[in-house]
Design a protein around this nucleic acid. Sequence first.
DNA 1: GGGTGACACGTACGCTGTACGTGCGTCAAC
DNA 2: GTTGACGCACGTACAGCGTACGTGTCACCC
Lengths: 216, 216
Amino acid sequence: MIMLNQSRIVAAAVDLIEREGADAVSMRRIATELGVGVMSLYNHVPSKAALLDAVAEAVLSQVEFTDDPSAYWTDRVRIQARAFRQIAHHYPRCTMVVVSRQRTSAAGLLPVERALATLRDAGFDGREAVGLLRMFIAYVVGSLLREVGVAPAIPPVPPDVTSAGVDPALFPVVGELAPYLEECDHEEEFEFGLELLVQAMAVRAGGTVVRGDARG
Amino acid sequence: MIMLNQSRIVAAAVDLIEREGADAVSMRRIATELGVGVMSLYNHVPSKAALLDAVAEAVLSQVEFTDDPSAYWTDRVRIQARAFRQIAHHYPRCTMVVVSRQRTSAAGLLPVERALATLRDAGFDGREAVGLLRMFIAYVVGSLLREVGVAPAIPPVPPDVTSAGVDPALFPVVGELAPYLEECDHEEEFEFGLELLVQAMAVRAGGTVVRGDARG
DNA sequence: GGGTGACACGTACGCTGTACGTGCGTCAAC
DNA sequence: GTTGACGCACGTACAGCGTACGTGTCACCC
């Protein structure tokens, strides 16, 4: 008797995904990992798809919010956005799984609540708050996708299209800006867009642009 | 003799994906679709992964740019963003494939060239232009992912978490804004974020905020 | 005519998800 | 104490997957 249960299975799946990538996930592999027969898993998980949904939910539920309602709303927005980026960094390969399955899970609802509360506090009406949240989620998801996309390949430095094989006649601007296109500090990039979005929201809020960056 | 070739295979794959979803794609299925043996495909395509890369490239290459360098840069940005959304609408289920494989393909280079040229024309320096482009891509990708995510399920109206099963005590704001969360006009939402981004870029450019929306 | 390549094809191997049946442990009812 | 029900780990089995490999049939060139 090995006391199988859903959370142990999900944990093994998360572990496996992080170690060997999402393609390596198979029911047999997970069972072996747990020292268990394949079909035993099905006593706790209805299907592989459901297992991956559970993985997504488990990862998403680990987003830590230390929301401080007394802080200025722009700082609260920044902190919430960074919370997502943090777990995406902690589970880079699972992030792909989370994003690719768009199940509206319960774990995703708390962040939504916090974000909407923040935006309401900032003075936005309901419709605007929802619209801004959707835009924010789109930006964060898109950023994390790019940042995490390098994971499956051998990380060191994929021979980018921009490195040398670009015809300057066809792509003059790309050629000129190649140095900038090759280097990419993901954190810096994320913060750049985040700041632009926050500023844009502040402008829309009608207030003055606030520079109270909350990072250490 | 049935005159197989790569583009016919890719076309069949695109067709199959749009009709039955990415999960339905298998080499055998595509071969059957083409009235051909399975292994014949491998005379024109090295592997399934390469085929999916080719699908992504084919879809991406259909993005139509009618870039008018004489137009004001904000309008050019809007048009380019909408061009992506348009093909995503035309190939909703392939969009997922395009996004999930982050191969830096040649087809993706022309849009980059156009976008960077536009941003340089707007007066941004090289570093800023690249940063803004990355932010823009993140937003567009994130938006399209949300918009396209509904495709695999039965489209009509998935019973959203927000509809009724939400405890107003735990999620007061979500409960209050449920009507806005349930409805989602994707085009309106996309334009909302797009406008906010363009405005933010205009502010950053130091110029005045320009409202020259170019849509008919 | 004989060699050479391109290409459609069949077979086969190891892998996948999972439906189904089986056996064993524990617990409730009689 | 016996019996039945039930939970759960497990083995077997099946259809389907990607693809390595060998084979046969052409068109073409020397």
